[in-house]
Design a protein around this nucleic acid. Sequence first.
RNA 1: GGGCCCGUGGCUUAGUCAGGAUAUAGCACCGGCCUUCUAAGCCGGUGGUCGAGGGUUCAAAUCCCCCCGGGUCCGCCA
Length: 575
Amino acid sequence: MAALQPSYVLQSTNTNGDAMFLTFREQVEKLLTEALEKCEYPSGDLALVVKPGYADLTSIVTFKLASILKLPPHEIARNVVQHLGSDVLVARAEAAGPYVNFFVSADYLHRALSVILEEDQNYGRVNGDHIVILEHTSANPNGPLHIGHVRNSVIGDTLMRCLKQAGCRVETQYYVNNMGRQIALVVWGLMNFELNGEIKPDHATAEVYIKANAEVELHPTKLNEIRELMQRFESGDQDVARLFEDAVEFCLQGINQTLKSLHVSHDRFVWESEFLDDLDGIIAELRDYGATENDGSMHIDLSSFGIGKNLVVRRSDGTSVYATRDIAYHVWKAGRCNRMIDVLGADHKLNALQVGKALELLNIGAPEVVFFEFVSLPEGSMSTRRGHFVSADEVLEKVTEKAYEEVDKRRPTLSVEEKSSIAQAVGIGATRYDLLRVSADKPMVFNWSEALDFERQGGPFLQYAHARASNILVKTIFDNNYDPNLLTDESEIKVIKLCAKFPAVIEDITKNLSVSVLTSYARELAEAFNQFYRFMPVLSAEPEVRRARLALVVSARIVLRNVLNCLGIEPVDSM
RNA sequence: GGGCCCGUGGCUUAGUCAGGAUAUAGCACCGGCCUUCUAAGCCGGUGGUCGAGGGUUCAAAUCCCCCCGGGUCCGCCA
């Protein structure tokens, strides 16, 4: 089985000269601009759109020009096409009514193949000039990750993989909230209840946390003990600090284990308490930019940004608030990268906006934030405190179990180890894909029957296409000697065209930070490969044709593998 | 009450930021395809007033206004 490749090369990259579709687009832009100039039409926005089914690239610039030139669009289109020059990547251009359609050449397809074979796992490099700090997950260490946290993790981890595929240097960080009320409750719970040593640390922590919450609700006077713990921590009491640290570290062990099984990793865990020493400086600086004092507390008026509420950056008792520590964290990050990206739940929108504005006041740009809406249960929203949640561990366990049944059904002769290994890969792939395919700003409802349903075009569908490609290649040797002119079937061209678009997809994601386009692209690519596979025999074809089709299979497998790696889904060779 | 987000076939969903030619897939349903590289697959079919109403535009799922339905935020919490 192919190992997932978490270690990407971190050096900076060449430019996008090898990204075929992007180069094609550039050439079309050039030809079109020249043609417009020859016609003495204004050339600004070329209005290029992608409309599969009609052409590889279409310009609708004629509509924009029509009102300026007082000419019908189709006449403009005809005239433009007549003045169009030529390029090796462009087979032809034609006016279809008002539309100016461009088609890729055979050369384009041939070059696309050789670029893929050449670049292999680096295929997809587009712009490597960014040094990125990407913060994601950052769940409070008061219990196990639930399926909502995992949406954050999977979006963040996939973004990291895409940015690295693009050639960026990326450091992922988990911001550990280790000094809040919730952690104080955990610490208090550990002092008052027995810890279950039989279960995973994060689950054991949740038990204690839930009990502590119930107890405090029953006897509100105990809140004083919680408050005292927090005050002693912030005033530098080493014994209390040790208790907090141990509790957090303990829970984090379990969380980390879950993340690892999801193929999610963090380069660095940054503890909130590390910024306590920076706060006086930050607050002083904010004062210079207009923060005002009131009864010893410190506020920033953000009404000029349309935020009605004042942001409190220091309490009247002198202690710090979360927002200020978050500002300090971002100031620190900003000094270490040229792109800050945070993945946050949509409930943090106002906070993030406030922190962003404060950072702008400090002349540090606001981070780019990817928000995602909640994952809820059919019976309502999840809550660690009330113990109402579906843990990631539970989901993974059941999904993997179900995957094993499926593997066992289809491949009864495999060994238990092989079946388990495939089941693991398929289960995790299905889970990650499901959380990624829905655009981040849509709320999701977690549903067991859907989570366990593999009869859909999800992660396993992609893995299956990859396994099919692998299965052909394992039976032969490809010597990189082939004639691309023999690849003329519609299904073959479709696969190559899609493969050629991969760098453009990666570029889009690094720009817009929206990962759901990758799931759509992956599905289309797998589908195209399956169609090719169904209609075009490879191993049994005539020697010349066989070599050409092998080149296609190798290329498609490279792109499928790179896509799967970006999605954090294991590209299996057999399933 | 105010801010932000969502509303696309029976169910789930792409596309909305950067308006253009037949609105994307899956599930479910109906009908085909395994002596040929793994059928977790392929081919075909049924099913849509893109929440409602106005507006802008040659052109609106996409932009603007208003309304309805759902989510979420509005702590000297984190």
